[in-house]
């Protein structure tokens, strides 16, 4: 019996066991540096999983993932730097603001078909970036905004926060895509006309998916602000970061939710491993690998597992 045939509860049990094992990583003599890379990789995994929910299931390419992440991150950072609230309240507010901003963006945008939705999400990032620079006295502009508070200083605790965020997101999204809601979403993504004929309100379902995606993206963005200590446009509101999230999700395997976790960790690890090549060459290599995966393994790394299993069965 292979993983893809397991019932949902068994998959969640595997996820729980893997999470518990991963939680032990800080205590097995891992370097602080490695731990910090894994922490960023796990935040990245949350972004990639949520992108997969929209792309893999709802069939919408969101080029503006950083619009949602950035809204969460900047809301939390600005509240915290003005001393309005404690970190946890800031994080909750960040997630809430991301949902509101996401709904405002998506509600009109989802009526658009084809490439227009992707375009609007991309433009949203560009506009947000310009606005942040325009109101630099409040937002810190291009330099960024420093956050005075931290949730935890200890690197193990920070790793556990990121791990928890990734694991909870994975579990909830997995349950979601296996639920009737997820099946309808998948149907809409694969054949919108047919789904509409069946009587499903396409915009309503896509909007719900977008808001869920916004919630987790904003939450992780806000958490990451408190981990990094600053919010800056190059990390949180950048089209290039959005592209990296897309690459991570595609490499990992779209329409799998778990695949993007692999993809995100692969991306962060590859960036570290290739660092000696220098910025341009390492980014070029990562893009090249992603392109090759796209061509030869359209199902991603998790798709590879499926192919190998079919071969063995045949």
């Amino acid at each position: 019996m292979t993983v893809s045939h397991l019932p949902t509860w068994a998959r969640l049990a595997i996820l729980a066991v893997l999470t518990a094992l991963a939680a032990l990583l800080p205590y097995v003599g891992l370097q602080e540096y490695t731990l910090s890379i894994l922490t960023l990789g796990l935040f990245f995994a949350v972004y990639a999983m949520n992108w997969d929910l929209l792309f893999g299931y709802a069939g919408e390419a969101n080029f503006g993932a950083t619009f949602l992440i950035g809204t969460g991150a900047y809301t939390a950072a600005m509240m915290s730097s003005n001393g309005v609230a404690t970190p946890l309240v800031c994080v909750a507010a960040g997630a809430g603001a991301a949902v509101i901003a996401g709904a405002l963006l998506a509600f009109p945008a989802l009526r658009l078909r084809g490439p227009y939705f992707g375009l609007v999400t991309l433009v949203a990032v560009l506009i947000m970036r310009q606005l942040i620079i325009l109101f630099s006295d409040k937002t810190g502009g291009e330099i960024g905004i420093a956050v005075p508070d931290v949730i935890a200083i200890d690197s193990a605790t920070n790793f556990h926060i990121a791990l928890g965020a990734a694991a909870i997101t994975a579990a909830i999204l997995h349950l979601l895509v296996r639920s009737p809601f997820g099946l309808i979403l998948e149907a809409i993504g694969q054949d919108p006309v047919n789904a509409q004929v069946q009587g499903f309100n396409i915009v309503k379902y896509k909007l719900a998916a977008f808001c869920i995606s916004a919630f987790f993206s904003g939450l992780a963005g806000a958490l990451m602000v408190f981990y990094l200590g600053t919010a800056s446009t190059n990390v949180f509101v950048d089209g290039a970061v959005g592209v990296q999230i897309i690459i991570a999700a595609i490499i990992g395997g779209r329409r799998t939710i778990f695949g993007p976790i692999l993809g995100a960790i692969f991306m962060v690890a590859a960036a570290e491993y290739l660092r000696p090549l220098g910025g341009p060459l390492s980014e070029m290599t990562v893009a090249l690998i992603a392109l090759i995966v796209l061509f030869f393994l359209p199902g991603g790394l998790l798709g590879l597992a499926t192919i190998l299993r079919r071969r063995r069965a045949a």
Binding site: A61, M284, L288, A290, L294
Partner: peptide, 10 residues
Amino acid sequence: LVATLLWTII
């Protein structure tokens, strides 16, 4: 879209 985006980066 994704492929031309990757090509852009390359």
